[in-house]
Design a protein around this nucleic acid. Structure first.
Lengths: 122, 122
DNA sequence: TATAATAATAGTAATGATTACTGATTTAAA
DNA sequence: TTTAAATCAGTAATCATTACTATTATTATA
């Protein structure tokens, strides 16, 4: 990641603009609105670099594709076991300090539970 | 998972006996000491069932195979970004209650940091 | 017990998300 | 500019995991 590339900037801009935890395929579809012929391989390669540099978070989901999150401020994820949706859980300062105390700054915290929508239905 | 199977029991026993977060291939290798012709597909199928029933934890690791953990008491994982090893972090009661307060009982908490070995070397 | 119905298995084939490759293009430094 | 390094699009390859199938094991019932 030593040179500028408009493809990478467009990927970052797209991830900044959404709060939906898209897959690589959803990202390439979104970025193609701006760069019509960007290839899926380019998206994967840049996402890997961005993840390695902590600019983007990767979410591994049981039996599903990886998802990506451009909003790196510490937060937890709730994976709904009913509908599969991933929701953000925003952490309070005191919760955050406990998490950092356990094992450092760089963590991921994922919950299996019902999302707000499915909780209401139930 | 309605009938008994010695294959599943052997998988559970193997996972109980180790603290190394093995992959499916390591598990099949270990279980073959007891059931020489158990197949990898059987291991995967049983692991999926056990994960769905919260008897076993699954660990998704960036760019690597999934790993499994038979010790389901709540704990965090430290993935060493230098050597790749996964270590358990045991949680204190007050830390645990904060985690449950955030999003419920069923969570996974993973840290990217240096493991105890690599920390010393450094 | 036998018998029947269901569940699980071994072995193998197929899948598909992700990565690797290649020749062309872009970037950035001298 | 010229040159070297980085990145790209497009496509082929990989390989962890899942799906399939014919056989065997388990459980329930008579």
């Amino acid at each position: 990641m030593k040179n500028y590339s408009k493809q990478r900037e467009a990927i970052i801009a797209y991830l900044d603009s959404v709060y939906t935890h898209p897959t690589a395929e959803e990202i390439v579809k979104g970025v193609r609105e701006v760069i019509p012929n960007i290839s899926l391989g380019t998206v994967y390669r840049n996402l890997n670099d961005l993840v390695a540099n902590h600019k983007v978070l990767i979410l591994h989901i049981d039996g599903d594709k990886d998802r990506y999150d451009g909003h790196t401020a510490a937060h937890a994820h709730l994976k709904c076991y009913k509908c599969g949706k991933v929701e953000d859980i925003f952490l309070k300062d005191d919760q955050l300090s406990v998490l950092k105390e356990i094992g450092g700054e760089d963590f991921s915290l994922d919950y299996n539970a019902l999302c707000s929508g499915c909780k209401i239905e139930k």
